[in-house]
């Protein structure tokens, strides 16, 4: 919002909810293996926490992220994803074949592959988070603000 919107009540509610939304977002990302969820949904939840602050505090939002930083975070997510794929590519396996990540730690091949898919989920989370915050920020500011 272009001006501060919240009353005292709204501000206190948002203040209490903010950490819980963050924790729930991280929970959804980390438990993407076991329950519905994963990178996309977790990224959306994390961005909701930032957007909630922005909705209520407006320009005085306590957690402001600039456009250049948002684009960098998004690109970092894709780069992280690509790095995991390229790593196995360099070590002579197929692109995104996680079994190349390591074979020293465990005999069970499934475990290391689960770690690889968790890594790509993290990359997806970063990208979705930054993109949603970016689109929201731009749309509420209007053109050429």
């Amino acid at each position: 919002m272009n001006e501060e919107f919240g009353s005292k009540l709204l501000k206190q509610t948002a203040r209490i909810h903010f950490p819980f939304i963050l924790v729930f977002g991280i929970y959804v990302v980390v438990h993407g293996h076991y329950s519905p969820g994963g990178g996309f949904q977790g990224g959306v939840l994390l961005s909701m926490a930032i957007i909630l602050l922005d909705l209520i505090w407006g320009p005085n939002s306590p957690l402001k992220i600039s456009y250049s930083k948002l684009i960098k975070i998004g690109a970092l997510g894709i780069l992280f994803y690509y790095a995991i794929g390229a790593y196995s590519f360099v070590w002579g396996k197929n692109f995104l074949d996680y079994s190349a990540l390591s074979t020293h730690y465990t005999d069970h091949p499934g475990e290391i592959r689960a770690l690889g898919s968790f890594g790509i989920e993290l990359g997806v989370t970063l990208t979705v988070f930054s993109t949603l915050v970016l689109i929201y920020k731009k749309l509420q500011e209007g053109p050429r603000h």
């Binding site: 456009y67 894709i78 990359g123 949603l132 050429r144």
Partner: peptide, 25 residues
């Protein structure tokens, strides 16, 4: 996983396009 990689890039591109259409200071 390769498909998901493409999806992620699509989302990132959507953000970039929204930014480039509306313009920044």
């Amino acid at each position: 996983a390769f498909d998901t990689f493409g999806e992620t890039i699509v989302i990132f591109c959507a953000g970039l396009v929204a930014l480039s259409i509306l313009g920044i200071k």
